[in-house]
């Protein structure tokens, strides 16, 4: 049985979470792809990323530690962060805890 995490499923999950975060800014129609950047495309502020971090924890549990992931990035990298890079991080975190 294949236990690997499907990146497309993670992308869809993230799109749902981001939709809730950006809905407060009236950006409900924003299409979210792997190339979407948090800062320039979604205009998220750092405090919005904190809220997203809480959503990730609620959804995936302790295995996905977004705060630790972001703490390891430089400010320039945080500003350039794409949805795709976060998808990859989530997939890697989930697969690291799953049987091979």
């Amino acid at each position: 049985m294949n236990t690997r995490t499907d990146p497309d499923t993670v992308l869809a999950d993230l799109a749902g979470m981001l939709g809730k975060v950006v809905a407060e800014y009236g950006l409900v129609d924003a299409e979210i792809t792997r190339e979407t950047t948090f800062h320039d495309d979604l205009e998220l502020e750092s405090i919005d990323l904190v809220v997203l971090s809480g959503s990730l924890r609620d959804h995936y549990g302790e295995r996905v530690n977004f705060a630790e992931f972001v703490a390891g990035l430089e400010l320039d990298e945080i500003i350039a962060l794409t949805v795709g890079r976060l998808v990859d991080h989530v997939v890697a975190s989930l697969d690291a805890g799953a049987p091979a």
Binding site: E45, S46, I47, L49, V50, S53, N65, A67, E68, V70, A71, I78
Partner: peptide, 16 residues
Amino acid sequence: DSLASYYFTLGPAFAA
């Protein structure tokens, strides 16, 4: 400023 200034800098290291 906001709590994000700590959440993405000092917070995780302190918890660890």
